[in-house]
Design a protein around this nucleic acid. Sequence first.
DNA 1: GTCTATATGTAGATAGAC
DNA 2: GTCTATCTACATATAGAC
Lengths: 233, 233
Amino acid sequence: MTKTSSAPALTSSPRRRAPSRRSLATSQSILDAAERLFAEHGYDGASVRDIAAAAGAQIASVSFHHGSKEALFARVVERRAQELSRLRLDALDTVKARAEPLTLEGVLQAFLRPYLDKAGLDGTGAGDPQWLAYARLVAMVSADARWHRISERCFDPTAGLFIAEIAKLFPKADPSRLAVAFVFSVSAMLSLSTSRWRIETLSSASPAESGTEDLADDLIRFCEAGFRAAIDG
Amino acid sequence: MTKTSSAPALTSSPRRRAPSRRSLATSQSILDAAERLFAEHGYDGASVRDIAAAAGAQIASVSFHHGSKEALFARVVERRAQELSRLRLDALDTVKARAEPLTLEGVLQAFLRPYLDKAGLDGTGAGDPQWLAYARLVAMVSADARWHRISERCFDPTAGLFIAEIAKLFPKADPSRLAVAFVFSVSAMLSLSTSRWRIETLSSASPAESGTEDLADDLIRFCEAGFRAAIDG
DNA sequence: GTCTATATGTAGATAGAC
DNA sequence: GTCTATCTACATATAGAC
């Protein structure tokens, strides 16, 4: 008499309320479509109708699986945030485990590379298109005060850890200047997913075309030098 | 017989089709309101209705004076773009006219300072709120591929001139790397209008509060060092 | 030039059958 | 869990009186 549920114990899988394979697939494809459309058109520019259509689902399924549009957006951002943080922290551990002493460049690589690698922004080849969309979404969230809370929840804790790591390397540096340099570095990183077209435009005015060089290397060199200037100041 | 216009020559001002003072004021206040609301809520998030209400105008006046919503947006961006370019080029001329030889820092100052000064992002005090809104709008336009064309028209020509100026200072540097460093620098500059809250958040985790320091100086030092790393590479 | 009224489309969300 | 149908609100844009 402990169950008043209407589900009879007829199936081979006795667990209650476990989502079916089909339900999970629907839910996931909605998140994927939302990721792409939010990244391409922005929050207000992407309609729930279009997202449902792109996912091959009904519009009512979106509310059923993910609730309101805002809840859907937050879920899309959060979905990969944990994996991204883990990749960054793993990379940091790997660098720390090396024989050589930890360097500023090593810490920056550990933070910047996972984002660029997953999105295929490092110039070594195409990344996962879904992660590329996510990378643009991260840029959106980071630049818009409207998503301030999501940013604080998903990205700031890890960012704080990396800043603390750099502060340990340079104990005499002003911590607030490190935070400023970190924000500049992150914004430069994000520019690779929002402004690559601008790099092309501004480079093509020059005679020598250097094609798709390793922008990730350029980014890391740029940020490392900028950080050192902030530390010495 | 050259005029079929219905306007009689009764007023003291004989010029044809000159907008009245009131018309100009309406048109301007619509642009101001649009600047604020587009900057705060984004293109899709700000409705023409809200813009008209904030301007104290009727919704039909918006179409009358500025046409479609997209045309209004473009006009808002273009309105101050010319002034901003002029300020930058004037600053460049001023630096060049000095006795000392032109430096990378001087060129960067000439590009970055006018944006920060007008918007009051340099930490020296509050700038014009209208310009602050414009600064956030510039960040929006720069990050969104949708406004790619506006960006090319309004900002890229001046950016190209500044890159060329830097290329003259470092003739052996790879021009495409200079363009990359320039885009990184611009994105760091824009982060001061989109991500200052993030600087506060990430700084406050540290013990020493340094208040509102001169972020503009930090920015210029960061970018200059980053540029030198790009040039030497 | 301004204003009222409205045409026309689309948004987000949900009720209820299946 | 899915799907059809629909409610309600708000969007852009314009017609036409003043």
